[in-house]
């Protein structure tokens, strides 16, 4: 099992957002997590990646057989956890190229490998850029600075391609994307998908799932996974709306 979350409780500023969540992911699988706004989807992503301020008050996150509750975010990243941010931050003055090379070498160092040569690095950049149809000029700019919404999301997928994670979490990657950008992003994900990695796709709408087909669909509500099924569940949700879930569980 790649990821196994047991009875997870997460609080922000003392307020419990995730309230006993169980969830597991195997290699080669794509899981979609859906649910109304404010039910803890992004909190789950933050907890898995170790964001500060998200306190695990109970339960364990077990990744590749180890409890990672206390791991720093970079250690988790170097172990293969990647988050495509919902709102990627701008980092002025730090070029994409420099940023990516630093990240890639950090991982190599962590794995006891020598740094990547400039030539190999550039070749890899070019190859991955093509995959997400990202323009060369974007990688010459500072990280996310002056990028449009769509460019930022493409840039996230580009970074994912570069870092080759084992567990990728896409947090609302479809928000703010037009249909063409959505196709590009999904195409990138599908190319990266293999039996050695797994994806968790957090989304509010079904439309992304037309392009990234999930093996499992989970519905989150009030800090828990309340319903799981296959991709038909997503269609059912689309059809009936979240009110259907709310009605079922509020009573």
């Amino acid at each position: 099992m790649l990821l196994n979350i047991k009875n997870l409780h997460v609080s922000i500023n003392g307020k419990e957002i995730i309230k006993g969540l169980n969830f597991s992911v195997n290699k080669g699988e794509v899981h979609a997590i859906m649910g109304p706004n404010g039910t803890g989807k992004s909190t789950l992503a933050a907890a898995i990646t170790g964001r500060e301020g998200y306190e695990i008050t109970k339960g364990d996150i077990i990744y590749k057989g180890q409890v990672i509750n206390d791991w720093s975010p970079d250690k988790r990243a170097n172990e293969g956890v990647f988050l495509s941010f919902q709102y990627p931050i701008e980092i002025p003055g730090v070029s994409m190229t420099n940023f990516m090379r630093t990240a890639l070498n950090a991982k190599r160092e962590y794995l006891g490998k020598t740094p990547i040569s400039a030539k190999d690095f550039l070749r890899k950049m070019e190859e991955k850029k093509k995959m997400v149809q990202i323009q060369s000029k974007l990688t010459n700019r500072s990280v996310n600075e002056g990028f449009s919404g769509g460019e930022k999301k493409k840039n996230e997928i580009f970074q994912m391609a570069m870092l080759e994670p084992e567990l990728a979490i896409l947090d609302e990657t479809d928000s703010g994307l037009d249909i063409d950008a959505l196709r590009v992003v999904a195409g990138g994900v599908n190319q990266l998908k293999s039996d050695k990695n797994a994806f968790i796709v957090i989304t509010h709408y079904q439309r992304l799932l037309d392009y990234i087909v999930p093996d499992f669909v989970h519905v989150m509500y009030d800090g828990r996974i309340v319903k799981s099924g296959d991709k038909k569940l997503a269609l059912e949700l689309e059809d009936k709306g979240y009110e259907w879930i709310k009605d079922q569980f509020d009573n």
């Binding site: 990646t49 170790g50 964001r51 500060e52 720093s72 975010p73 970079d74 988790r76 990243a77 170097n78 990647f82 988050l83 941010f85 990627p88 931050i89 980092i91 002025p92 003055g93 730090v94 420099n98 940023f99 630093t102 990240a103 950090a106 991982k107 962590y110 500072s142 990280v143 970074q159 870092l163």
Partner: peptide, 20 residues
């Protein structure tokens, strides 16, 4: 956090951001 999430440790991340 963004840097750390990409696997860059705190020390390097600070260096990177300061240099930027």
């Amino acid at each position: 956090f963004y840097c750390q999430q990409r696997g860059i440790d705190m020390e390097k991340a600070i260096g990177l951001i300061v240099n930027g």
